[in-house]
Amino acid sequence: MKNWTLKGLAAGKVTTKWPASGENDGQDKVLGFPTFHPQDCRPACRECILKCPTRAFSTKTGVNDEESVALDYGRCINCQICVASCPTTALQSSSNLTFASKSRQDLVVDEGVNSRENDELRSRVSSIFKGSLHVRHVDAGSCNGCESELQALCNPFYNLHRLGIFFTPSPRFADVLLVTGPVVPQMKGPLLRTYEAMPRPRFVIAGGTCPISGAPFDMGYSGGSGLEIHLPVDISIPGCPPTPAAFIHGLLLLTDRINQRLHGGGYEQ
């Protein structure tokens, strides 16, 4: 008979100190969102627009009628195809992953909107949950990648409970609804019923690129176009899937325990 208690004690502490201190967020060598500097684009080059499988790039017309390229991280699935297709250095791979944002606009490069302000009342309400936050997860059609990473949050390395954040079995005692998947037609009803069952105040997190924009499943008879048309979204965490560290960053951002790093599509190192 194995003595698991002794075995566990002998293994010692394995939990990362991140984000309180240290750099060990478990993301070493993970390729993150590409960095994009449209000023380095070749004139009239449309390679990224043609190659991107999720239509994350688009053209926009500036004040002098000149066209430039915009990138929406809310449609980006970190597939790195654009980086490989870019003939200049405008698009480069990066290790930047913690892209959680309070505003959908902040996910767009070159949108010209820098929405640092947010609803002060909501912010005051959400900081009440700094010490303890209860999360109800709903899978609205995900590939199980996001679930796998959310389950990883409870492993000894990330140990989400140390941050006072818990998953609840029922929406009745949840503060946050964390949605994964593009919201496919057959999940719309169960999702809205879960939200209705939550006590107020309640918050909504779009966890992953799917619930932000539906990409790459925003087509066909049974795709979805994301959460925003169904529910008010407080935090968007892009990624395919977001790494556990990106999920933690988003959950802490909701209660203002950590700073947003992405503003108007630009990432603070």
Binding site: P53, C79, G141, V184, P190, F217, G220, S222, G223
Partner: peptide, 21 residues
Amino acid sequence: YKHRGIEQDLQQQDPESGVIL
């Protein structure tokens, strides 16, 4: 419940890019 209709999404795609889905 999670049916995404992926088989139909792949229709008319270029075979090289289908690997992403």
